[in-house]
Amino acid sequence: MTSLIIFYLASCVVLGGGLAVVLSRNIVYAAFGLIASLSGVAGIFILSFAPFLALVQILIYGGAIVIVIIFALMLTKLEDFRTLSDHKHWPIALVTSLITLGIIISTAFYRPANLTSRSGLDLSKLADELFSKWAVPFEMASLVLLIALMGGVIMVRKIDSRDDK
């Protein structure tokens, strides 16, 4: 019962943060809403007996991704945002997202046969799986991350020195 109350609290944080992201006029408030929403997801992970994933969530999303987004906000011009033609297509967006929500919710009430009560997974078991069965995809993911970061650096680099030659 207590876990259900905590689940509902975390859900309120997640959904409230998400609504702040998509509805707020001020984009800095949207970034703060994103932090709240991602921390709420970390709370959901803790309720699911996955404290390691909650830690990864807070470290990577709260510590890296939101900071990068805030830096991107600082590097672009903030005055434009008030006059931006925002929410212009909101009826289409609302209808599309409501249809998607209806489809997902209608499938959510179909119960799979082999359900059990809530039970967690040992972290050492996760490490076993990740570094034996999924070792090659894991290394591929690190390669993808490296190449993406190198591509990002190359893309934002100033290339005016090439014209001098």
Binding site: S11, V14, L15, G18, L19, V21, V22, I27, S37, I44, F81, L84, S85, D86, H87, K88, H89, W90, I92, A93, L94, T96, S97, L98, T100, L101, I104, I105, A108
Partner: peptide
């Protein structure tokens, strides 16, 4: 919860212009 959050994100992708 997952469906609601996904729908909110989809609305943001389609409606916002930033």
């Amino acid at each position: 919860l997952s469906g609601l959050l996904f729908a909110i994100g989809l609305y943001g992708v389609l409606a916002r212009r930033n």
